[in-house]
């Protein structure tokens, strides 16, 4: 655990999930009923289930608070290294919308191998290109998907 790592507890996560529940609960009431009366409308199941979401997130939150008081809370440590990789992944996904698929993917794989220091530069280049080329030929040729 380095000094720069972030910490996030179970309490925070549960509050976030609680809010997700509330969001869908409120949204349920804006669903169009169409030609059907309320008891057979599309609101019933989402409203009911998001109420369950709120309930179970609240329950889980209460337990998390109890656990924190007792000193046994799950505290997750986010090391910059992993967070950085996730950020790089998101950049990759974003890049897919603008850069050709094969190019973005090869660069991402190359980056990954170097980032995790798993292969030397030359090997990393060969493996990245090979993986992308092999899988793209497989998907494209065999399954008629033209990239």
């Amino acid at each position: 655990m380095s000094a720069t790592s972030y910490k996030s507890g179970n309490v925070g996560a549960n509050i976030a999930f609680l809010l997700v529940g509330v969001f869908f609960f409120v949204s349920s009431f804006f669903i169009d009923r169409g030609i059907y009366p309320i008891w057979s409308s599309g609101m019933i199941v989402p409203a009911l289930l998001s109420a369950v979401m709120i309930g179970s997130a609240a329950h889980s939150l209460a337990q998390a608070i109890k656990a924190r008081r007792a000193g046994g809370a799950i505290e997750r440590t986010f090391e910059p290294r992993v967070m950085g990789y996730i950020a790089a992944f998101l950049v990759y996904i974003g890049a897919l919308f603008v850069v050709p698929f094969w190019l973005a993917s090869s660069i991402f794989l190359l980056f990954s191998f170097l980032y995790w220091k798993s292969l030397s530069l030359v090997n990393a280049i060969v493996v990245s290109v090979a993986v992308v080329a092999l899988s793209m030929t497989l998907f494209a040729k065999v399954f008629y998907i033209v990239f």
Binding site: F17, V20, G21, F24, G42, V45, P46, L49, S50, V52, M53, G55, S56, A57, H59, S60, Q63
Partner: peptide
């Protein structure tokens, strides 16, 4: 069980 109910309900709502 509460956490399982949460993910299951979220699954249902996202599925809709």
């Amino acid at each position: 069980f509460g956490k399982a109910m949460f993910t299951a309900s979220l699954g249902v709502v996202l599925g809709l």
